[in-house]
């Protein structure tokens, strides 16, 4: 184990995978400028700067992936993916199916998002659910440096296009990261804290918000389980269902808006497959249906906060007492 931040963990994952497999390459806006260590280790063929042109970066990743390379494309900020949607959604996500399985698209699209840096709505937009809704794609959004490394290695080795979102507020937070062959399989959630009274379900930065809320709830005598989804597609249904069958109550927390978001999907899943175990309606605590603000005060109000989650947890349990369950 060694202590490093998420950016360093990603760098380690990239270096290890590029060392392991000569087909892995990385390109994007400033990749060769910012990742000098990779450039020196693997040369300008495999570590490339690109024009500021997200459409062709994504299309090039898809074309290269389908013909034998395993690209990692850095598109910087998630809202820039709007220019890259055709390459990701129409090409990488669909051409395997539409060709009757003739092609594979082993590629990773890396982008940052999330509040905390006051960059405003055209650099911060949690659009991860858009890609969950698109067939053929996988979606990852880690919360710890260890997961940034392990999930990136798994994403590079996967034969499908993987959207890898970095919550930018987590980029410089240190954490313990295992050395060497540390793989976190796609599609496996992590139980960050065990509990019995209610389940807090989240991913990325708000996992830490949920852990803080769980601390607060413990002070009130309530035991909250905290689940970190890690991969949004495929979703780890088994871990979610097992937890909610145990606790009977669930709160989903994410910074992305509520409408048609991951929380809505989790609510539907629990309603469809664990209805009998639910003691209370599912609660969602999310960012508002508004563009992400840049003012510090507004941005803090935009992001889910521990106190609101803890209060919602208390309300859920008290509701039980009121209705006599």
């Amino acid at each position: 184990m060694s202590l490093m931040n998420a950016h360093e963990a990603l760098g380690q994952a990239l270096a290890e995978e590029m060392q392991r497999d000569s087909r892995v390459l990385m390109f994007g806006e400033g990749v060769a400028t910012k990742r000098k260590d990779l450039l020196e280790a693997f040369g300008p063929q495999r570590v490339r700067n690109t024009p500021l042109a997200e459409g062709i970066i994504a299309g090039t990743a898809a074309g290269a992936a389908a013909t034998g390379l395993r690209p990692v494309a850095d598109l910087l900020f998630a809202p820039f993916l709007c220019f890259a949607m055709d390459g990701i959604v129409n090409s990488a996500g669909k051409l395997r199916y539409m060709s009757g399985g003739q092609f594979e698209f082993p590629m990773v699209i890396l982008a940052m998002t999330g509040g905390g840096w006051t960059v405003g709505a055209q650099h911060n937009h949690n659009i991860e659910a858009w890609f969950v809704h698109s067939p053929g794609l996988k979606v990852v959004m880690p919360s710890t440096p260890a997961d940034f490394k392990g999930l990136m290695k798994a994403a590079i080795r996967d034969d499908n296009p993987v959207l890898f979102f970095m919550d930018m507020a987590l980029g410089f937070e240190p954490g313990e990261v295992p050395e060497g062959e540390w793989i976190v399989p796609l599609g496996q959630a992590a139980i960050r804290r065990e509990g019995t009274d209610l389940t807090l379900i989240s991913y990325a930065k708000t996992v830490h918000t949920c852990l803080a809320a769980a601390d607060a709830l413990a002070g009130q005598g309530l035991s909250a389980e905290v689940i970190d989804l890690r991969t949004l597609k495929p979703l780890d249904e088994a871990t979610l269902l097992a937890s909610v069958r145990k606790t009977g109550r669930a709160i989903v927390v994410h910074e992305a808006g509520a409408l048609c978001g991951v929380g809505a999907e989790v609510a539907a899943l629990l309603s469809e497959k664990a209805f009998d175990a639910l003691k209370a309606p599912l609660v969602r605590i999310t960012g508002p249906d508004a563009p992400a603000p840049s003012s510090y005060a507004l941005e803090q109000a935009f992001m889910p906060q521990p106190a609101a989650i803890a209060q919602a947890g208390l309300d859920l349990v008290q509701r039980d007492a009121l209705v006599g369950r």
Binding site: G55, A58, G59, T60, G63, A64, S91, S99
Partner: peptide, 20 residues
């Protein structure tokens, strides 16, 4: 390979194929 009916889709994919 990689026939796309999105007008311009083929243009977006060609550099990656050539990179391979």
């Amino acid at each position: 390979i990689l026939t796309s009916t999105i007008v311009g889709g083929e243009l977006s994919l060609a550099p990656g194929v050539a990179l391979s």
